[in-house]
Amino acid sequence: MTRDFGVVWEHADRLVEGLLNTIILTLVGASLALLIGSLVAILLMSSSRPVRLISQGIVDLMRCIPFLMLAYLAYYGLPSLGLNLDNWTAGLFAIVVYNTAYMAEIMRSIWIGLGRESIEAATAFGFRGPRLYTRIIFPQIFLAASPMIGNQLIQIIKDTAFLTIIAVPELTHAASSIQSQYFVPFAAFIAAVLIYWALCMLVEAGVFVVERLAEVRR
């Protein structure tokens, strides 16, 4: 067994490369999802009933689809529509589309609980349009939503492992390749599991810090 972990250690560079891909996919995917999700949240909170119903319907529908299904649709399905993405880009595309729905829903749930007062004051002081959102509304939402956004970040980290199925060279894929080459399944996958664990604890620590910041800003 120790010998097995030795083998994995010799190929730690592959794990690190996989980890980097996992981190990049997670961070880029989450950032884009948060950005687009914010715009979708504006639609979810629209004063127009049809806009609200249609956007909510799409968001709810998206949340009924397993992530791997969406990754397949991006990787195998989009070429049928003439859009060829390599596996890495298809994976990222799936992460963004999938999580946009979740991020939008998270922000909507915080938004409806946000006091009217601070927004009304902003209106009275002449804020409107994009600046009302970027200066007053979204900073408050992001602070209050940090635990939920953190949970979603952990979900994204775990979802990236699905991308091994479409051969994206992320962490699980790296562990898989080490195991199939040297037949050290236990050591290879336990190493991956421990790295995922550390990564998720890092996210939780980050949420803890942001929550302290949010507490004084409530």
Binding site: K158, D159, A161, F186, F189, I190, A192, M201
Partner: peptide, 22 residues
Amino acid sequence: VSLLRSTPAVTLCLLIFFAIPT
């Protein structure tokens, strides 16, 4: 609980399927 909550199902499945037979 902490470990399993951070482990992707794919990775867990591979671990169980390949490691238990060893």
